[in-house]
Every structure is written in structure tokens, then in C-alpha cells.
């Protein structure tokens, strides 16, 4: 098990290294210099800046510098905010995005699991049909559409919640809901498939043959086995929530890294774009890692076989 974890950590670091190298290379590949937008700079200032950032040095040297700075948490300065350190912005804004993402994930997953269980138990009845219809719609419609609908319906039309901003619990409801719908739909669908699969297993009949009550069979035998594979969707879910949060933060003017990211795309603030990209990649890679380990811990079949190979 320990060896397995170490191996996964190794993979994780390699992937992350590839990501930061790729971001570096794309910086170098960007048309013109990163200061192209700062047209008003005099050639002298430009040279100063180039020197300050080591841009006058050969690319391999710059690369080493870049890695060195990266390890020390220096992601460069933001163009749109007068070269203030990107790291500082990210640190300031990341918690907001994290909060939003976690709220959406937790709400969506719990509701999704419940709906999926119900649909799986009442398979082929109206409840199942309704849940699955809702789920297809939830999976299909992009979160930026949901965000728009919710904003228009519950903030503009009926003024239940604030239109925008991030202050107080009321302001969390609409953005978190628009992100959670997709999560909920995906989880519900997955959970239903698993429930149906598990309820058809022989060991469910064994449990019934023991004389257990229906609820004991469902709770003790079915749900636990159906829940294990849910862990595998956490990875794709994280990706979906991150993607969604970019637009949802933008629509609700939430001061997270998502809206920051969109701003920096509009203003060609390359260091900020790269820094945010790296944060996203890092988050995704860590999530995949945790999912892998978690799966091994929760499923006894994998837990033991992992132990034997190490």
C-alpha cells in the first residue's frame, strides 16, 4: 500500500511537472513578447522589464529560473494590476472559489446520491422516470445557462436573492445551485445505474434469504456496494465544477479565481492566466490522486490486493 501511494505521488509530480513545463513553453510561444500589450512603455523601460524578468537570457536559463521561482511560489507579476505578484491574487481569491466549489459539490453529491438510490429502488416507475429525465436535462444544459435562468428568475424577476456578489449566505445560494445541478444530475444517474446493478446481484438474494428486512437489505448490502464506484466520478466532477465555476463566478461577479481568470483572458494578462491554469491543473491532479487512494482504502478487494503486491 505504501509503495502504491509513493508510486502515485511520483506519477502526480511528473504530471504536474509536465503541466508547468507546458505553461512555460506556451508563454514562450505566445506571439510577441508578454509586454506587447503594454505598448506605451518606452524601449528603455521595456528592456528594463525584460531584464528584470530575465527575458533577455537564453530560453533554457529562463526555464531554470521559471522552475526556481515556481518552487518558491513566485508566479510572476500581473500585467493588469501593475506587476503585483500573481501568487498574492491567487491566494486571496482561491478560498472563495474553493468555498463555492465545495458547497456545490457537497450539495450536488448528497442530493444526487439520494435521488439515484430512490430511482434505483423504484426502477421503471414514475419516480425513476422523473429523476432520469431531470438528470438528462441537468447533464445537458451548461451551468452558464442555469446561472442565467436562476439569476433572471430569482434575483431579477422575483428578488429573493442578490443578483451578484459574495457576501452572506444568501449570495451563495444561486451560484452554488447553478453549479450543483450538473453535479446532482451526474451523480444521480451514476448512482441509479449502480443501484440497479447491485440490486440484481446474487448476494442481495442471499441477504433476503437470511430473512433481513427490505430496509436492512437496501441499506446494509445494496447502498454500500453501490456507493463505492461513486468515488470514481469525483475526478470528472471536479473538472466539471472547475469549468462551471469559471462562468458562474463571472455571471454572479464572485471574487474567485474563476472570474479573475476570465478577466485576465480578456486583458491578455498572461502571467495570471498561466498561474491560474497551474492552480487548476494542480487541483485536478491532486483530486485524481486522492480518489485513487480513497478507492483503495474503501474497497476491501482493492485494499488487500494492493497490500499483497507491495
Amino acid at each position: 500500500m505504501v509503495r502504491y501511494i509513493l508510486k502515485r505521488v511520483g506519477y502526480m509530480l511528473v504530471t504536474f511537472y509536465v503541466v508547468i513545463t507546458l505553461t512555460f513553453l506556451s508563454m514562450k510561444l505566445l506571439p510577441g513578447t508578454p509586454f506587447k500589450t503594454a505598448n506605451r512603455l518606452t524601449p528603455q523601460q521595456l528592456n528594463q522589464l525584460r531584464h528584470y524578468y530575465g527575458l533577455d537570457q537564453p530560453i533554457p536559463v529562463q526555464y531554470v529560473h521559471y522552475l526556481w521561482n515556481f518552487i518558491h511560489g513566485d508566479l510572476g507579476g500581473s500585467f493588469q494590476y501593475g506587476m503585483q505578484p500573481v501568487t498574492q491574487f491567487l491566494l486571496q481569491r482561491f478560498p472563495v472559489s474553493l468555498e463555492l466549489g465545495v458547497e456545490a459539490m457537497i450539495a450536488g453529491t448528497i442530493l444526487g446520491i439520494l435521488l439515484g438510490i430512490v430511482a434505483g429502488i423504484y426502477r421503471a416507475r414514475f419516480l425513476d422516470w422523473g429523476t432520469m429525465t431531470f438528470s438528462v436535462i441537468g447533464i445537458s444544459i451548461p451551468s452558464f445557462i442555469f446561472a442565467g435562468i436562476l439569476q433572471y428568475a430569482f434575483a431579477v424577476n422575483v428578488q429573493l436573492f442578490p443578483v451578484a456578489g459574495w457576501s452572506g449566505p444568501m449570495s451563495h445560494v444561486l451560484p452554488a445551485t447553478s453549479l450543483a445541478i450538473g453535479v446532482l444530475a451526474l451523480v444521480a444517474r451514476f448512482m441509479r445505474t449502480e443501484m440497479v446493478e447491485v440490486l440484481n446481484q446474487d448476494y442481495i438474494v442471499t441477504a433476503q434469504a437470511k430473512g433481513l428486512t427490505t430496509s436492512a437489505v437496501v441499506f446494509r448490502h445494496a447502498i454500500r456496494n453501490a456507493l463505492i464506484p461513486i468515488i470514481t466520478v469525483i475526478g470528472p466532477l471536479t473538472a466539471a465544477v472547475v469549468t462551471g465555476s469559471l462562468v458562474v463566478e463571472n455571471i454572479f461577479a464572485i471574487p474567485g479565481i474563476g472570474s479573475q481568470f476570465v478577466d485576465s483572458i480578456v486583458t491578455n494578462d498572461y502571467p495570471m492566466i498561466m498561474g491560474t491554469t497551474e492552480v487548476y491543473a494542480g487541483m485536478f491532479i491532486i483530486t485524481i490522486f486522492i480518489v485513487d487512494i480513497l478507492y483503495g482504502v474503501i474497497d476491501p478487494r482493492i485494499r488487500v490486493s494492493g497490500g499483497q503486491t507491495s
Binding site: 505553461t23 506556451s26 469549468t243 485536478f284 485524481i288
Partner: peptide, 20 residues
């Protein structure tokens, strides 16, 4: 594996930034 290890979003954004 390397391609899959990095989220789609990141790939696409990097590619699009490099191109117009």
C-alpha cells in the same frame, strides 16, 4: 496517460492562447 492526467480545460486554454 500524460494527456489524460491534465484536465481538458487546461490543454484547450493553453492551445488557444498560443494560437489566436
Amino acid at each position: 496517460e500524460v494527456i489524460m492526467g491534465i484536465p481538458n480545460l487546461v490543454w484547450i486554454i493553453l492551445l488557444i492562447l498560443v494560437m489566436k
